[in-house]
Simulated assay, not measured.
Amino acid sequence: MANTPRAALNDLKRIVIKVGTSTLMYPTGGINLQRIEKLAFVLTDLRNQGKEVILVSSGAIGVGCHCLKLNERPTSIPQQQAVAAVGQSELMTLYSKFFSEYTQVVGQVLLTRDVLDYPESRENVTNTFQQLLAMGIIPIVNENDTVAIDELDHQTKFGDNDSLSALVAEITQADLLIMLSDIDGFYDKNPTIHDDARLFSTIHAITDELLLLAGGNGSRFGTGGMITKLKAADHVLNQQSQMVLANGVDPMIIFKIMTGEKVGTHFYRK
């Protein structure tokens, strides 16, 4: 075990952790406070170990729906942006509250895709991340949903936070991306439907065959599906980095990942 790639994960220093809406919200649409508190505990403990930690967090629209007592995610762009404005503020309040219990300072970084497309603004973002990490601060990153749009001549939207987390891992030159979802990893078929679904423990390259196995959207308050996670993994692999996809029902699983336990799906080049 000591010579396996998984066992070496604990030696990695700079880690991006991505949590989806399904990790932060109950299926009822309520906020999962105990999970957010556990996440704050785990990430602070990683910081205490000397790791550099970046959190990419979805959930602005989900939390906004909860605050505004909406049963479904709005369909129009203006409604989504208004709900996100409410939700992002509340989400950061929750993170600040729970992280402060462990005396860990956090900072908010909101991004749109065009910021990373232009060299000067990309450099400024990179410098901000470097400074936050140097100061021992955990950056909490989300897409700036209140202004992000998709237009033919000016694309500002990442589309999903799976893509965003892979890009954050790239610009920060992270050693590892841990993506927490509502599924145990990547399967050859949908495990909620097929009892004989097989979990891929390791994947070394994203092939057309694997992409065909993926598809569909996530929770009713989220946007991501398995195919976006595979594309994020492909991006990470092309940067000569690594990614682990695992179930975020218990954030303590991050400790298991770092100590080399065989959980989730580990993406790395041979």
Rank of each mutant, 00 (worst) to 15 (best):
T4W: 07
D11S: 12
L12P: 11
V16D: 14
I17V: 13
L24E: 01
Q34F: 13
T44N: 09
Q49W: 01
I54C: 10
G59F: 06
A60G: 04
C65M: 10
C67T: 00
L70V: 02
P78Q: 06
Q80I: 08
V86S: 07
V86H: 09
S96E: 09
Q108W: 09
R113G: 08
D117E: 15
V125A: 05
T126H: 11
F129D: 05
L132M: 14
G136A: 07
I140Y: 01
E143P: 00
D153M: 12
L164N: 14
L167H: 10
V168A: 05
L180E: 04
S181F: 02
D184T: 02
D188G: 14
D188W: 08
I193G: 02
H194T: 03
F200S: 09
A205W: 07
D208A: 14
L210G: 12
A214Y: 04
G215M: 00
G215K: 01
G215C: 00
G216R: 07
R220W: 04
G224S: 03
G225H: 01
K229L: 03
A232I: 04
H235L: 05
H235A: 05
L237R: 10
N238E: 09
Q240N: 13
Q242L: 06
N247V: 01
D250A: 08
I253S: 12
I254K: 12
F255K: 13
F255Y: 14
F267L: 08
R269Q: 10
